[in-house]
Nucleic acid binder design. Sequence first.
DNA 1: TTAAATTAGTTGAATTTCGTACTTCTAGGT
DNA 2: ACCTAGAAGTACGAAATTCAACTAATTTAA
Lengths: 155, 155
Amino acid sequence: MTKWLSPDEQRLWRAFISAWTLLNHQLNADLQIQHGLTIADYEILVRLSETEGRRMRMSELAEATLASRSRLSHQVGRMETAGLLAREECTEDRRGSFAVLTDAGWQALVAAAPTHVTGVRANLVDVLTKSEFKALGDACQKVTAANEQISLYGA
Amino acid sequence: MTKWLSPDEQRLWRAFISAWTLLNHQLNADLQIQHGLTIADYEILVRLSETEGRRMRMSELAEATLASRSRLSHQVGRMETAGLLAREECTEDRRGSFAVLTDAGWQALVAAAPTHVTGVRANLVDVLTKSEFKALGDACQKVTAANEQISLYGA
DNA sequence: TTAAATTAGTTGAATTTCGTACTTCTAGGT
DNA sequence: ACCTAGAAGTACGAAATTCAACTAATTTAA
């Protein structure tokens, strides 16, 4: 027998859905309109910018961004075409390859980051008290941990 | 000058992203595999099921789901083909039309709901304490309220 | 009361995105 | 040398999404 959600649980769950949906929608629109980037693009730029040599192995990047390998491959291909990234061979393991941030990619990130961060603040961080935000994030961290085994690749 | 996120804020924000992403991916896979429905389908079924006459104006439904009119029209078209929905003319405003839940649509929802709710419990509600979940939801409610003015057709 | 403007919704490409399955190349063990 | 597994790219196709143009009904206002 299914144990249904109580009205209260339902309210909280729906709040989670709508909060994320609205926020994501807004942040995406901001990046798209002002910088021609999607959130997925942006996240990849950020990840790469944080690593040494601004490069990451494809599989690492896929894991970090919660994307399937195929999806990431396509995504990186697009960003390569756009000049934001380049691929480089990996000399230690020559099956592998790196996605590397180009100068243009770095510039794009530098340009877009203020927009994005401002949006995150305005629409999320600043509408909550410090402790509310912390409670939100901590709960999410638990949820993430509990779901970490979920594979995003087919079967 | 942009006020950047502190490492702690960044951690919390990323936890929010990953919690949502993993959860959504899992719930979507469950519905897809077991019932051939996407989350978008499911959401529409739920919305309609909760209204009087199990019907909603297209534009209302579009707004509720943050979809453009065109997108919703296609989506409803697909679901109509699948037999889940029907369209009906609106007699008060004859430009308008309703999306109406069919019996088959209702049955599909009845069949899928246990899967979905079980997933929500297993991957979200039950991995948190009651108060953690409440804190998460309450924070999200504030975020939602703060972002409610967001519209697709904006501008 | 009629013409213009607005609103609701649909449609058919074109485009974007993504998954599946397959291929290639390499690493590591036996 | 051989066999298995891993990393990644790609071709193909299915599906979703956008975009622009379109019909038709309604509202506004001259």
